[in-house]
């Protein structure tokens, strides 16, 4: 059983995107605890990949492939986790690009970075309306709502989610980012955190859930 868990960790580290789902299915069949498989296998694997990226030993596509492999295995393992039990994560982040903005890659990179640092990420995609952010934040019980805007014209959309969100819940934290967004602007609109790039987004998220 320990072998199966180690094998899952290795599969993330080797970016086995196409075949890892079969490994996960086999592990379940062999009676491996899905929570152990996730926490000791997948999470450990992606942590190692993230650390290598941080040290400059591997490049971004390898990190993304590691995260994709983890995602593929999670799709098999998560539904098998008994009701009432939850995998331990660094926190749950709801992320999306704001309404009228279809820029995707920056937001995706932040998702990948967060996932490779132990966060559970729910990605709402691009052109996400304010009401969708509010509805999903409530449904998902997210610790952090992360919004991205890449145009000066769509930046104000972020402000318009923060006000009602904060009114509803004091606990939820908001972080914002995107090329035109600045630290000053983030503070003005009442965001709890800002980051200019995907790597520092992880530090911000860690600070917010501390």
């Amino acid at each position: 059983m320990a072998d199966a868990v180690a094998r899952l960790k290795e599969a993330v580290m080797n970016y086995e995107m196409e075949t890892i789902a079969d490994l996960a299915k086999q592990a379940l069949k062999d009676g491996v605890d899905p929570l152990v498989a996730i926490e000791k296998g997948l999470a450990e694997g992606i942590k190692t990949v993230g650390e290598k990226f941080g040290r400059g030993e591997i490049f971004l596509p390898e990190l993304v492939m590691g995260a994709e492999a983890m995602k593929a295995a999670l799709a098999v393992l998560e539904p098998a986790v008994p009701k009432g039990k939850h995998r331990s994560t660094a926190g749950k982040v709801l992320i999306g690009t704001v309404q009228d903005d279809i820029h995707e890659i920056g937001k995706n990179l932040v998702s990948t970075m967060l996932a490779s640092n132990g966060f559970e990420v729910v990605d709402l995609g691009v052109n996400v309306s304010g009401s969708d952010f509010l509805k999903k934040a409530d449904e998902q019980k997210a610790n952090i709502v992360a919004m991205s805007a890449l145009m000066t014209t769509t930046m104000p959309r972020m402000a318009e989610v923060i006000t009602p969100l904060k009114k509803k819940s004091k606990a939820v934290k908001v972080m914002v980012g995107g090329a035109p967004v600045t630290d000053t602007y983030a503070k003005e609109i009442g965001a709890d955190g800002y980051s200019g790039d995907a790597s520092s987004a992880v530090e911000v998220a860690k600070r917010l859930v501390r």
Binding site: E160, P164, I189
Partner: peptide
Amino acid sequence: PMWGGETKR
């Protein structure tokens, strides 16, 4: 006015 009313800015 912007969507959802005026922003602080």
